[in-house]
């Protein structure tokens, strides 16, 4: 059992190791290393360790060509992905409000169908996908730094919610600082854990495309959300589509690829006025509240209340002050 010693040694040496090195430095480290004490310390901090040789190590991750020696897990519940459909949702950190809304809705609808939504806890699309998934199910975040770090720090609250209702995973032991070279390595785990990878918005040559490439290398399915052809943020995704990635127009497209039955459609909510009138304005395209006021002739307060109710019903989402209809609910 040298896996734990390997990752701790690698962290101290600032290296990235997949297997125990044959060096005297490592041998002497291994003699000094008290695995039992280390594990006790981890568990006192609520962190579990799953070695690659462990039966509970995620099977799909073990199948990639460069699996990590093991993974650290921070969660209230033991990690078990066996038999669960898993999808990675990745995309630009500086995404548009469209990308944010799509990622949230995909996360939510896929999680509602029982899919574990995997992403990298980064800003933008990643965080939106995690948040969406937490609304209706569970999610898994892969860190590119030590398992004890909430990176980026701005997502500390989100990370807390994920440990309550999902899992945070890293191949790096506590104390490893975030470093740019570790993020591509993190992406291979995101892609490796998932049956399929959905790219929501990506610039050319961006990290999300690296994840897509890694997924393709492992023979996993890659899907992409179409975007406006004029937007930089759609260059990457539209290029993927041209190369043959499956287009995503709603959550059902993804479930189809996974072979997962979509959950029974909820009873279509019977909307009274003014909700129905407002919803039909929103259905014409993203729109600000003032424009809705002008098109419906309703009072601003009435429109605000109706929009909040439509949001609660999951029929409408808002970002940067624009309201848009939730996909696939017509």
């Amino acid at each position: 059992m040298t896996e734990l010693a390997t990752v701790v040694f690698a962290a101290e040496a600032g290296a990235h190791l997949l297997d125990a090195p044959r060096s005297t430095r490592f041998s002497s480290f291994q003699r000094r290393f008290d695995e039992a004490a280390y594990l006790r310390d981890l568990s006192a901090r609520g962190i579990a360790w799953i070695a690659r040789s462990d039966v509970s190590f995620p099977r799909r991750l073990a199948e990639i060509h460069d699996p990590p020696p093991g993974i650290f897990v921070r969660s209230r519940t033991a990690l078990s992905l066996e038999g669960l459909p898993t999808v990675a949702i990745v995309g630009a950190r500086a995404c548009s409000s469209y990308g944010m809304a799509v990622a949230t809705e995909l996360g939510r609808e896929l999680a509602a169908a029982g899919v574990v939504v995997v992403s990298g806890l980064a800003r933008g699309v990643d965080a939106a996908a995690h948040r969406g998934a937490l609304q209706s199910g569970t999610t898994l975040a892969v860190l590119g730094c030590g398992i004890d770090r909430d990176y980026p720090r701005a997502h500390a609250v989100l990370a807390g919610e994920i440990t309550q209702r999902g899992w945070i995973v890293s191949e790096y032991p506590p104390g490893v600082e975030p470093a740019p070279w570790r993020f591509p390595a993190r992406n291979r785990i995101v892609a490796g854990l998932a049956q399929a990878t959905v790219v929501v918005e990506a610039r050319e040559r961006s990290g999300a495309l690296i994840t897509a490439d890694l997924a393709l290398d492992e023979g996993r399915e890659v899907l992409a959300v179409p975007g406006e052809i004029t937007s930089q943020l759609s260059r990457g995704t539209n290029a993927l589509l041209r190369l043959g990635a499956t287009p995503v127009t709603c959550a059902a497209d993804v479930l189809d690829v996974l072979g997962v039955e979509p959950p029974p459609a909820p009873e279509p909510a019977v909307l009274g006025e003014p909700l129905r009138a407002i919803r039909s304005v929103v259905a014409d395209g993203s729109v600000g509240a003032d424009a809705i006021v002008r098109r419906t002739g309703l009072a601003a307060g009435t429109v605000a209340a109706a929009l909040a109710e439509l949001e609660l019903l999951g029929l409408v989402t808002q970002s940067d002050g624009l309201y848009r209809e939730v996909m696939g609910r017509t």
Partner: peptide, 18 residues
């Protein structure tokens, strides 16, 4: 309920909260 719904629409959006 309508008053409460309107109040909800003025909460800080997620993108500002985190």
């Amino acid at each position: 309920a309508e008053h409460l719904a309107e109040a909800l629409s003025y909460r800080a959006p997620a993108e500002l909260v985190e």
